[in-house]
């Protein structure tokens, strides 16, 4: 089953008089349960592609389908609704809300989907357990290491049991050990839950975790390898 389908997608940014072509006619399909790396040098269009897949942005031309639904022309509120239950994000910077504890950060998407208190509590504990941070539930981001914060971010991304998790350079700000740990957790959760993961990276060690590698160069897909 297709989670994401991009059909001849272009994205042009216009800054003043200058036009930047971030994506040039990309057609791509992501299937359920994939664990895929999006690779390419800086400026190749990785982040733009993740933002389009994540319904954070709209293509200049072409169509984006999420779970067989054409999301290209959805209004901002409809896109927000879609993101809420279907897509989880892990960002390069450890995008936790500073004043909230690890527990509260993971709880946030569940508050947004209106989950009941008991179900919320159970889910948050389950996820913190899954990322090995059950004992850090009451810690705020500034009391945790980068690796721990990123694991909380992964737990948060998984909170609403989304179909798809998009991670933009999830290990870029982590040392080798923490980076590996984060990737192992993502890999395990992918295997255990069947959640689709697409992560952008240009770290070869991270790429080695992927079962599929999609290579981007100058806004075009140049390689589309299936590893396993």
């Amino acid at each position: 089953m297709q989670v994401i389908q991009l059909q001849d997608v272009t994205r042009v940014y216009k800054i003043g008089e200058v036009e930047t072509h971030a994506l040039r006619g990309v057609t791509l399909t992501v299937e359920t349960g994939e664990f895929s790396a999006l690779v390419g040098p800086s400026g190749s269009g990785k982040t733009t592609m993740l933002q389009l897949m994540g319904c954070l942005d709209r293509p200049t031309s072409g169509s984006v389908y999420v779970n067989d639904q054409d999301v290209t022309r959805l209004k901002p509120n409809q896109r927000a609704d879609l993101r809420k239950g279907t897509i989880g994000f892990v960002f390069q910077f450890f995008a936790l809300i500073p004043g909230l504890t690890a527990y509260e950060n993971v709880e946030l998407p569940l508050l947004l989907t209106g989950e009941k208190s008991k179900a919320r509590r159970e889910r948050v504990h389950e996820l913190l357990e899954a990322v090995g941070l059950a004992d850090r539930a009451r810690h705020r981001p500034d009391q945790m290491s980068g690796g721990e914060q990123q694991r909380v971010a992964i737990a948060r991304a998984l909170a609403t049991r989304p179909l798809l998790i998009l991670a933009d350079e999830p290990t870029a700000n982590l040392d080798t050990d923490n980076g590996r740990q984060v990737m192992e957790i993502m890999q395990r959760l992918n295997a255990e839950t069947g959640t689709t993961f697409v992560f952008a990276t240009h770290d070869p060690r991270v790429v080695s975790f992927a079962r599929r590698v999609i290579e981007l160069r100058d806004g075009r897909v140049t390689e589309n390898n299936q590893h396993a």
């Binding site: 994540g54 954070l56 901002p76 509120n77 927000a80 609704d81 879609l82 993101r83 809420k84 239950g85 994000f89 960002f91 910077f93 995008a95 809300i97 500073p98 946030l108 998407p109 947004l112 989907t113 948060r156």
Partner: peptide, 15 residues
Amino acid sequence: TREMGILAALGMKGR
């Protein structure tokens, strides 16, 4: 600002 972005990414609507 960035937090607002995160909240929006998590599915929070403008209103």
